[in-house]
Design a protein around this nucleic acid. Structure first.
Lengths: 148, 148
DNA sequence: TCCTTCTGGTTTAATTTAGCAACCAGCTAT
DNA sequence: ATAGCTGGTTGCTAAATTAAACCAGAAGGA
């Protein structure tokens, strides 16, 4: 009995979850975006079991979300870095972060927040729009099966 | 030994994952957005075990993402619906969908796609921007701890 | 050089979760 | 009335998660 595999799904959400839906995986990606690169730093930062971290990193590398490369700091150790594919998960993490900020914290409760280094300003709220720029809610959307 | 609970984290991503990071949960929310409301319809659509569906729905209701209400079709059964909080997960699902569309399908491979019913047009690519409207990549962002 | 610590894991064992099938009581349609 | 649907629950097994111990190679210090 294996956990259901969704990597053949025709729904991109399901297929994405097959890559990044595992427990801990998105937190590893989040940390990687903040500059964490080394095995022990991930482990310290997240506090997860080392063997689990091993399997998660292996899967992320196998899926092309991260790469393992020799460290750039002179030591003969290695580091894990996000690929372009991995960095492209930024909108997912930001959307999740904004949802959490809005619904999961009491007013005044402290939480971390992203800002743009260049301007020092906070981020715009992510919205779903169609190609005309019209905001779309759940009720405004339909689903088709295409093959582009 | 229980699976790590992250609902006290100061990072909104972690706290969000505590609500919606479980296996199957985001797929249930996705189906709910497409109009699925009944227990057996979720089960048929997703093909997950019924006991797992039960615990997922209970947690979603407990977390305020969905509600259980008497069905509107005259029968005395019940239906599960997204709350406003649940519908607010749309950007998360769209971001995940767009990531999957871009990286997880071979050219020409068929997959489902969202469109705006009003205009018939597809969705704009979700981007991360600061309040000036400047596009931000991973390297352009910093993290602070605030308490708004 | 020797000793200690850090790194990046692997192994083992205990606990929890997921998947499957069977079962069941209360509705509904025929 | 009766057969099937609905919305579960229960019990079992396989797999995943956890924590803790262990380990070899590299780095750093005396």
């Amino acid at each position: 009995m294996q956990r259901r595999c969704l990597d053949d799904s025709t729904c991109p959400v399901a297929r994405s979850l097959d890559s990044i839906g595992d427990w801990w995986t998105l937190l590893i990606v989040r940390d990687a975006m903040l500059g964490v690169r080394r095995f022990s730093d991930f482990q310290r930062s997240l506090g997860l079991a080392r063997n689990v971290l091993t399997t998660r990193l292996k899967k992320l590398v196998a899926d092309g979300v991260m790469t393992m490369a020799p460290a750039t700091d002179g030591t003969s150790y290695q580091e894990y870095r996000l690929t372009e594919k991995g960095e492209a998960l930024l909108p997912v993490l930001v959307a999740m972060r904004q949802w959490g900020e809005r619904f999961l914290y009491a007013p005044g409760e402290p939480h971390s927040e992203l800002f743009a280094i260049a301007s020092g300003k906070a981020l715009e709220q992510i919205r779903v729009r169609d190609l005309d720029g019209q905001d779309c809610g759940v009720a405004d959307l339909g689903l088709v099966t295409a093959s582009k």
